[in-house]
Computed example of a mutant assay.
Amino acid sequence: MEAKLKIVPCTDANRILLKNYRLKKGQEQWTAMPLAAMEQCDTDKDRYPFLLLWDLQLAGFFRSE
């Protein structure tokens, strides 16, 4: 059986998925919002953004430094 969860690099092609990404109320204090984090990745080439996809739907975002 193929895993449903995939970790993929964030590219210009799939970056559109971040536009509608929302957190539950109160969670924003624990993490950066993806679009703001992407701006940091755009200016700092030592940061690498990734998307977590569950059945091709955006489930999360993280960046490695």
Rank of each mutant, 00 (worst) to 15 (best):
R63A: 15
D12N: 11
K4H: 08
A37H: 04
P9R: 05
R22P: 00
P49M: 06
F50R: 12
A36S: 11
P49Y: 06
T11M: 02
C41Y: 06
Q40E: 13
S64C: 15
K25I: 04
F50Y: 15
K6F: 01
Q27T: 06
G26H: 01
R63D: 15
Q29Y: 10
V8H: 03
F50T: 06
K6H: 12
Y48E: 12
K25M: 09
N14T: 02
Q29L: 11
L56T: 14
E2T: 10
K6R: 12
P9Y: 01
I7L: 03
L17I: 02
L56I: 04
P34W: 00
A32Y: 09
C10I: 00
Y48P: 07
F50M: 11
L5N: 04
E39Q: 14
Q29N: 07
E65Y: 15
T31L: 11
A59F: 04
I7N: 04
A3P: 11
G26R: 06
A3E: 13
R15F: 02
L17R: 01
A13H: 07
K25T: 12
W30A: 04
L53W: 00
K4G: 13
Y21F: 06
E2W: 03
I16P: 02
S64A: 14
G60E: 03
A3L: 02
T11F: 05
A3Y: 09
W30L: 09
C41I: 07
K6S: 01
Q29H: 08
M33Q: 08
A13S: 10
L18R: 10
R63G: 14
R63N: 15
D44Y: 12
L17F: 00
I7W: 00
D44G: 14
R47G: 03
E65V: 15
I16W: 01
R22N: 09
L52Q: 10
K24S: 12
L5T: 03
I16L: 05
R47A: 05
V8A: 05
D44V: 09
C41W: 02
L56V: 04
G26F: 05
P49Q: 04
M38S: 06
S64D: 11
D55K: 07
R15H: 01
L17D: 00
L18S: 01
L5M: 09
Q27K: 08
E65I: 13
D42R: 13
K24N: 08
N20T: 11
R47Y: 11
A36F: 07
A32L: 14
R15A: 02
D46P: 13
K45T: 14
R47C: 10
D42H: 07
D12W: 05
M1A: 11
L53R: 02
W30G: 06
A32V: 13
A36M: 07
T43R: 15
Y21E: 08
D42L: 14
L51F: 01
V8P: 09
N20E: 11
E39N: 09
A3S: 12
T31W: 06
Q29I: 12
K24H: 13
